[in-house]
Design a protein around this nucleic acid. Structure first.
Lengths: 240, 240
DNA sequence: TAGTGGTCTAGACCACGTG
DNA sequence: ACGTGGTCTAGACCACTAC
């Protein structure tokens, strides 16, 4: 084993597993070796091996299924709806948003983008705009910014005909799995461009969500600025 | 033992411990018996006992400290700031809010209040208003609503001179520990009353947070409607 | 029936805090 | 030196899934 020797044994095992996940040795959707096999391989007891996996399961990077095995998590629709999409109707049930593609541009990083994506000001980026609807009502305009370097092979068509979510695209085409997000919210007056998209009057109060999505290594993947009409919907979060 | 016999053993132990916490047998700030003692008492192995405690530690109901023991968590300032207060400066570090008492009224439950606190429409409630500042800037007006029945002995002076937070008051005076919150956010135009308090113009976009705080049994404790000026501050959440 | 994860045991030893 | 939580072992048996 080439694992660094520091701290508890189960941490080393955990790091070794995370490495296999991060470098694509174990791919999303795939069944990983059984706990007994891994325990033997790493030369640890099954209890220690389980403890190493526990954390990854808690972070929802791995999914245990009794009787079947342990899988590498995928960005399926339910998962995304449940964990990464926080807009719900003011009355009624959570449902899947309809995504409308608006445009795809190359651009350069502003100061804000540079800071959030940890790249240089002026570095090339992609800028994608989508419009989201719930129950036939337009709820938000999403401006998505991606580091050009990291997503070099990205092109417009990939956004036009997509049955899946964009996180799914990150995962399948770029091997990037989003495991965490940081969201900053403000109330602002809608400016003209967004107001038109949302079919509301310029100056109407809108909820602006700045979200940074992070991968397994804690590196930023995307910055998404969502401008939300909260006249019929709201942002919902359970905390702790 | 009078524990219900259902599901895994460690769940029974966990329920027994939670019962002692909920009924005040184990009080916030108190050291609970050592793991070895509890394992003996419940007639389980130390591994099982630890597993029972693990969940409670994860929910931050108990705090483990190596070498010392395991404590029942209290609502101290750091904890509240860290887990329950989500307003931060747009640039700068998170800090403690200054709380200014505005008023304390008896009132009756509106439909919204009744639904969120799970009480009857028209039932008596307390209505407290505070004003919060960060770094000498007024950031929000908090309208807090409490079920009169649950907080019967509450009175105005308790809000005037308090070095601690209101959650601390719930815990110390009423034995109620908040373990979870649900927050719903919208952007709205400030109406006159709140605008005056925030020293902004009527109609300015403000972030309105409706928060329900829940106790260990999942029962609602308070409804808090925070009206936030996000011109210099923002709402921050880490998700997953 | 065979293989998986889930529970549980009965220890041993380590790391940490306190007297 | 002692008591605490933290780690780790080497099993056994149970519950579930698939064939």
């Amino acid at each position: 084993m080439s694992t660094q020797e520091s701290g508890p044994l189960y941490r080393s095992v955990q790091r070794a597993l995370m490495e296999r996940l991060a470098n694509g040795d174990l791919k999303p959707g795939q069944l990983i070796p059984s706990e007994r096999q891994l325990a033997t391989e790493f030369n640890v007891s099954i209890g220690t091996l389980r403890k190493a996996i526990d954390d990854l399961v808690e972070q929802r990077i791995l999914i245990r299924q009794q009787g079947k095995g342990t899988y590498v998590a995928t960005h399926d629709r339910e998962r995304l709806l449940f964990y990464f999409f926080h807009i719900v109707p003011q009355s009624g049930l959570k449902s899947y948003p309809l995504v409308e593609f608006v445009f795809f541009h190359k651009a350069i990083a502003s100061e804000e983008v540079a800071m959030r994506l940890k790249i240089a000001v002026g570095a090339p980026v992609f800028h994608i705009r989508n419009r989201m609807s719930l129950d036939d009502q337009i709820v938000s305009v999403d401006d998505i910014v991606l580091d050009h370097e990291r997503f070099a092979s990205l092109s417009s068509p990939q956004f036009r005909e997509r049955p899946n979510t964009i996180y799914n695209l990150y995962q399948e085409s770029f091997g990037i799995t989003v495991v965490k997000t940081e969201e900053r919210l403000r109330a602002e007056a809608a400016h003209e461009e967004h107001a038109k998209q949302l079919k509301i009057k310029t100056g109407t109060p809108v909820l602006v969500i700045r979200r940074v999505a992070l991968d397994m290594r804690g590196e930023p993947v995307e910055l998404r600025i969502s401008t939300v009409n909260t006249s019929r919907h709201e942002y919902f979060a359970e905390l702790l």
